Computed example of a mutant assay.
Amino acid sequence: MATCTSIPVVIPEDGLPTNAMIKDIVGTFLTKEWSKVDPETLVVTYNTGYANTNCVVERPRPKGDTHAEPLKVFLKINGEFDGEIEVFKDLVPDKHEEAQLCYDYGRSGLGAKLYGFFQTKDGAFGRVDEFLDARNLKPEDVEDADIRADVAKGYAAFQAMATQREKKPVETYYDTITQELAKYHKMERLKRLANEAGVGIDNIIDFDFVSRIRRITDRLNSIGGKKGWCIHDVQFMNVLVKNSPKPGESKIILIDFEFVFHNYRAFDIGGHFLQKMFQWFDDETKIANCRPYTEEEKTHFCEEYAMQWNETTGDSDTGEQVFMESELGFMLAITFEIHNMLCFMDQDDAKEPLELLGLKKLFDEFVNQYKKLGLEGQGP
């Protein structure tokens, strides 16, 4: 179990702990060698964002190259604001629950090992994890059948994973997001912000997402759509590809569990297909310069997913069943992204043109998929 350890350090205001602090934190959990390291010999590579401080910490290689503890670790310290959207606060895991998810995933042999979960004297939470020699998944990676299969199996294993998190009813999420989208429906202020940026989104603001989401979830229920632990934030940066995988082991690892809660498994599967078309952290465009998933690739993904899901759960699902669910989950994932973008517009007066062009692309994908599945004539 991931127990929280109190560590008597105070993180500086800039969020960057000193080498001595890092040594004390890591040495609390790795007591044989890290606790004796000279802090000045540590090499720390920081990666600070708007939410968290992440860093890779490396200690000197010992003489003779024999060591009982890893030479590198990954250290994460959560900031005061770590991306949580207020309306989902009762659904997303707290830091202890997130650490437990990481612990359970690591114990499964599929994810990074959790060496320790801690809270500092000033109240900041953090984790010391296994360092992963890996890179972020790229859109072209999933055009490789082997990597695509490993991503599919990775999601299936995670979604069916045994963990101590409470399974809240999925209706809780859909009640919340439909109430929020209803709030933004026809909101003139959002239209004005977008028009000031030169990217009109009036048709998106005036669109009735609420009744359409209900139509989609009704269809999912009618075909027996199954539920599991969804990550929700399934952008490609949250899948790592190992640089040197061992023979027979998965080439990928899933990361970032800040938004994990129970939902239709189709949400993450369809969301994965969706995210191939976007690159949200690019400074030039948010729309990826690549082709979307093909039908054949989706079919292969869903077949691999079904085999892993069945192996984990004992079910007998088919790839066809998973594919049908994913087609509906694709739209649910879009409404999640659209909601979050409208939320940030409303809260922060955000009107970045590139983000708005991405929003328009999301909307077009939703409308086309809704029509493709024949839902247009059955609902609003």
Score class of each variant (00 low, 15 high):
residue 287 I to Q: 02
residue 258 E to V: 07
residue 303 E to V: 10
residue 291 R to E: 14
residue 295 E to S: 09
residue 301 F to L: 13
residue 262 H to C: 06
residue 284 E to R: 09
residue 299 T to V: 06
residue 270 G to K: 03
residue 273 F to V: 14
residue 290 C to E: 04
residue 285 T to K: 03
residue 299 T to G: 02
residue 268 D to A: 05
residue 261 F to M: 09
residue 290 C to V: 15
residue 304 E to A: 13
residue 280 W to C: 14
residue 289 N to Y: 00
residue 272 H to R: 03
residue 304 E to V: 04
residue 293 Y to A: 09
residue 296 E to Y: 01
residue 261 F to Q: 12
residue 273 F to E: 09
residue 273 F to K: 09
residue 273 F to S: 12
residue 283 D to L: 04
residue 279 Q to N: 14
residue 259 F to T: 15
residue 288 A to P: 01
residue 263 N to T: 07
residue 265 R to M: 11
residue 259 F to G: 05
residue 279 Q to H: 08
residue 286 K to A: 12
residue 277 M to W: 00
residue 292 P to D: 08
residue 290 C to K: 02
residue 274 L to M: 14
residue 293 Y to N: 10
residue 301 F to C: 06
residue 261 F to H: 15
residue 258 E to D: 15
residue 301 F to W: 09
residue 290 C to Y: 00
residue 276 K to T: 15
residue 304 E to R: 10
residue 260 V to G: 04
residue 278 F to N: 13
residue 265 R to T: 15
residue 302 C to P: 07
residue 287 I to S: 07
residue 296 E to V: 07
residue 303 E to M: 03
residue 295 E to W: 00
residue 278 F to W: 01
residue 304 E to Q: 14
residue 291 R to S: 15
residue 265 R to K: 11
residue 298 K to G: 12
residue 258 E to S: 12
residue 292 P to S: 07
residue 288 A to R: 05
residue 301 F to D: 06
residue 276 K to D: 06
residue 275 Q to H: 09
residue 283 D to S: 14
residue 282 D to M: 02
residue 302 C to E: 08
residue 271 G to Y: 01
residue 294 T to I: 04
residue 268 D to S: 06
residue 275 Q to M: 08
residue 304 E to H: 04
residue 293 Y to G: 05
residue 268 D to L: 03
residue 278 F to L: 14
residue 284 E to C: 08
residue 282 D to V: 01
residue 260 V to S: 07
residue 260 V to Q: 02
residue 267 F to H: 11
residue 292 P to T: 10
residue 301 F to Q: 04
residue 285 T to P: 01
residue 267 F to E: 11
residue 300 H to F: 10
residue 303 E to I: 09
residue 281 F to L: 12
residue 264 Y to D: 06
residue 282 D to G: 12
residue 281 F to M: 08
residue 268 D to H: 01
residue 288 A to E: 07
residue 297 E to S: 08
residue 258 E to I: 02
residue 291 R to F: 01
residue 300 H to M: 03
residue 290 C to I: 14
residue 276 K to Q: 08
residue 261 F to C: 10
residue 277 M to L: 11
residue 264 Y to R: 06
residue 294 T to L: 07
residue 290 C to R: 05
residue 277 M to R: 14
residue 302 C to D: 10
residue 274 L to D: 07
residue 261 F to I: 09
residue 274 L to I: 10
